Simulated assay, not measured.
Amino acid sequence: MEAGDLPREILIDIFSRLPPKSVGKCRCLAKIWRQQLSTPHFIKSHLTRKTRQENLILITPSHSIHSISTIKDDAISRKLELPGNWTEVVGSCDGMVLLVNEDHEKFLVNPITLQQVQLPNSPQALNRMESFSMHGFGYDSSSDDYKVVTLSYYDTDNEYEPDCVDTFVDVYSVKRGVWKRVNSSPYDHAVPEPSPGAFVNGAIHWLASSREPGYPSVIAAFNLVDEVFDEIPAPSSVDVQNFVFNKLVTLGDCLCLIDARGNGPTNVWIMKEYGLKESWTKFSINGDYEWDIVKPLCLIGDEEVVLVTEGETLVVYNRTSGTLRDMVVDGGPASAIDGGTFLESLVSPASIGA
Score class of each variant (00 low, 15 high):
K247S: 15
G136E: 02
G340W: 05
S173W: 15
N223G: 01
P233Y: 01
H46M: 09
L297M: 12
N127R: 14
R128P: 13
C93K: 05
G95M: 03
I57R: 01
V89F: 08
L346D: 02
C28E: 14
I300E: 08
L257I: 10
C28G: 01
D103F: 00
V191G: 10
S141M: 02
R8H: 07
Q35N: 14
D326S: 15
N267V: 09
N286Q: 13
K50P: 04
S133R: 07
E303K: 08
S38L: 03
N286A: 12
L119W: 09
F229C: 00
G287T: 11
C26K: 05
S122W: 04
C256D: 01
M271P: 00
E81Q: 13
V149M: 13
H135E: 08
L98S: 10
S67G: 04
A208W: 01
N242I: 05
L297H: 08
S185Y: 05
R181W: 06
I65H: 02
R325E: 12
N127T: 11
N246H: 15
S131H: 09
V315M: 14
L18N: 03
G275P: 00
S16E: 06
S184K: 12
T323D: 10
E310T: 14
I57C: 04
L248G: 09
F168W: 14
L108M: 06
V200A: 03
G332N: 11
M134C: 15
L6T: 06
S185L: 08
G353Y: 14
Q118N: 04
R49S: 11
